[in-house]
Design a protein around this nucleic acid. Sequence first.
DNA 1: CCCTGTGAATTTGTTCACAGCT
DNA 2: AGCTGTGAACAAATTCACAGGG
Lengths: 223, 223
Amino acid sequence: MISPQTIERLILYRRILERMRQERVSYVYSHELAKEIGATAAQVRRDLMAVEYMAVAARGYQVDALLSAIALFLDEDTEQRALLVGVGHLGRALLSHFRYSRASLQVVAAFDQDPACIGEVIEGCPCLSMDELGAIAQYKQITIAVLTVPAAAAQEVGRRLVEAGVCGILNFAPVTLQVPDSVWVENIDVTRSLEKVAYYSRHGDVSASGTVKEKSPRKRNGN
Amino acid sequence: MISPQTIERLILYRRILERMRQERVSYVYSHELAKEIGATAAQVRRDLMAVEYMAVAARGYQVDALLSAIALFLDEDTEQRALLVGVGHLGRALLSHFRYSRASLQVVAAFDQDPACIGEVIEGCPCLSMDELGAIAQYKQITIAVLTVPAAAAQEVGRRLVEAGVCGILNFAPVTLQVPDSVWVENIDVTRSLEKVAYYSRHGDVSASGTVKEKSPRKRNGN
DNA sequence: CCCTGTGAATTTGTTCACAGCT
DNA sequence: AGCTGTGAACAAATTCACAGGG
């Protein structure tokens, strides 16, 4: 099985390659990609072993071909629809954020328990009642959910999502969701991340001490 | 040096212990904390070796004392102020999100380049002009920044932040910031996270295959 | 030459397993 | 008995280092 870290980086490579294609770049070296994401060239080459494509020796990777290979690997062509639950400040911000994400991965419905926002259309996305969640999810074959409800409601909503057939959840609530093993949960916890930055802004700078062997990355992600 | 993963989990333990204290729980076992965060008891005990506190044998950890020890370790008492740059949808949502974060870590100023929102007060936080960024950061001794500007502006704003003395950045722009080694960057890339969920919602469920040895966690985080 | 792909080494993170305490 | 702290084993992820190719 292929590691989550590698998947994250493949998603980054795809994004960079898309930009390069627009800029009419035709070939790229592993060390150039490495520079872009703040990693080593060896790391890039190791990651790219996962996709079915090999570089043209001594000329690097052909941008178009590599892009297709990564897209194929990540199943870009498989259409996937997502729903969002919790139309608060964060939910709304994310709806506009995701509006311009890739065509094969769209947020098609929003849900909230507050009657005030039901019927509203936010960023082209209709806001519906929680009662309709199960029916809509099944009818539209939605497999992914973005969860932006208050912490207290998260577990219960999570349960309902799984019941409705969702098997991937992007959870913004600061709660460890209890879900079956078949469901993938990705947590984004902005408060925790801010606290982590606070910690490392004081205790950071590893690279200053000890053996400075090579260029130090000093980058992190949420995951 | 202490690993980022451990720091993340310590932040979670703190949050859970705070809740327990409110609920008047006085002792807690490592396996109970483990359950809460979806990890193993051994992991919890290993993490807690970092802080200066030992359990009462056979009775577990004393909630109050452990909480103090973790807080001390994470320097809860050291006041830290943060600023936010980029008062768009996401920036505003985060300002209200952080409003009720811990008292020792507050967002005290917001900045945007758009004159329309300058002077506005959002969630108790004044919105100022980018021109004042350096002066305010220095005057208020701000060391942390939340970056919610469009991708195209992120690198330039990042540079200015570092110039102003910021040494920790929580970056929401889908860009790899180039900063000195002394600056800690934590990335939250919501689009990438959604794409990752999309991937694993199809290719997930590791636990179904091979040797299922013990309870599988099936949780992830942004970083 | 300067690149890639990859086995081997290394580093980092997690889990096992058990002595020691109450 | 049932817990913790921790050395030792293990697993995962990254980096080294080098053969092979245009």
